[in-house]
Computed example of a mutant assay.
Amino acid sequence: MSEPKPVDEMSFEDAMRELEQVVGKLERGDVPLEDSIKLYERGAALKKRCEDRLRAAEEKVEAITADAEGNATGTTPAEGL
């Protein structure tokens, strides 16, 4: 079996997809304790990756919509991202 892809190299979509799989496995509760701990650690890293990618995307959108004086031009930052 191949090693999982490093989290810091994953796209948002790949990280989210794997995070959903991790959560599903943990929710089923049929994973041995040691494996559950490893899954939880991987899930935490995946969650952080998704948050970081969303924050970067939000910053890009804000930069695109800012005028020459640094004021937003008709948009507001997305709430909760």
Score class of each variant (00 low, 15 high):
Met1Ile: 07
Glu3Phe: 11
Lys5His: 04
Pro6Cys: 09
Pro6Arg: 08
Asp8Pro: 02
Asp8Val: 12
Asp8Phe: 12
Glu9Lys: 12
Met10Gly: 01
Ala15Gly: 10
Ala15Ser: 08
Met16Glu: 13
Met16Asp: 08
Arg17Trp: 13
Arg17Ser: 15
Arg17Met: 15
Arg17Pro: 02
Glu18Lys: 03
Glu18Trp: 01
Glu18Gly: 02
Glu18Phe: 00
Glu18Val: 04
Glu18Met: 09
Glu18Leu: 05
Glu20Met: 09
Gln21His: 14
Gln21Lys: 15
Val23Gly: 01
Val23Ile: 12
Gly24Tyr: 13
Leu26Ala: 03
Glu27Thr: 02
Arg28Gly: 05
Arg28His: 06
Gly29Arg: 07
Gly29Gln: 03
Val31Asn: 01
Pro32Cys: 06
Pro32Asp: 02
Leu33Gln: 08
Glu34Gln: 08
Asp35Val: 00
Asp35Thr: 01
Ser36Met: 13
Ile37His: 13
Ile37Gly: 11
Lys38Gly: 11
Lys38Cys: 09
Arg42Val: 02
Gly43Asp: 08
Gly43Lys: 01
Gly43Met: 04
Gly43His: 04
Ala44Ile: 02
Ala45Pro: 00
Ala45Cys: 06
Ala45Asp: 09
Leu46Tyr: 03
Leu46Lys: 06
Lys47Cys: 03
Lys47Thr: 05
Lys47Gly: 07
Lys48Asn: 14
Lys48Trp: 05
Lys48Leu: 14
Lys48His: 13
Asp52Tyr: 11
Asp52Val: 09
Asp52Ser: 11
Arg53Val: 04
Arg53Glu: 03
Arg55Ser: 07
Ala56Cys: 06
Ala56Gly: 08
Ala57Trp: 02
Ala57Leu: 13
Ala57Ser: 10
Glu58Phe: 08
Glu58Ala: 15
Glu59Gly: 02
Glu59Ser: 13
Glu62Cys: 08
Ala63His: 05
Ile64Asp: 15
Ile64His: 15
Ile64Phe: 14
Thr65Ile: 02
Thr65Gln: 06
Ala66Gly: 00
Asp67Met: 10
Glu69Leu: 08
Asn71Ala: 11
Asn71Thr: 03
Asn71Ile: 04
Ala72Thr: 05
Ala72Pro: 01
Ala72Trp: 10
Thr73Pro: 02
Thr75Tyr: 12
Thr75Asn: 11
Thr76Pro: 10
Pro77Lys: 13
Ala78Gln: 09
Glu79Pro: 05
Glu79Val: 12
Gly80Gln: 04
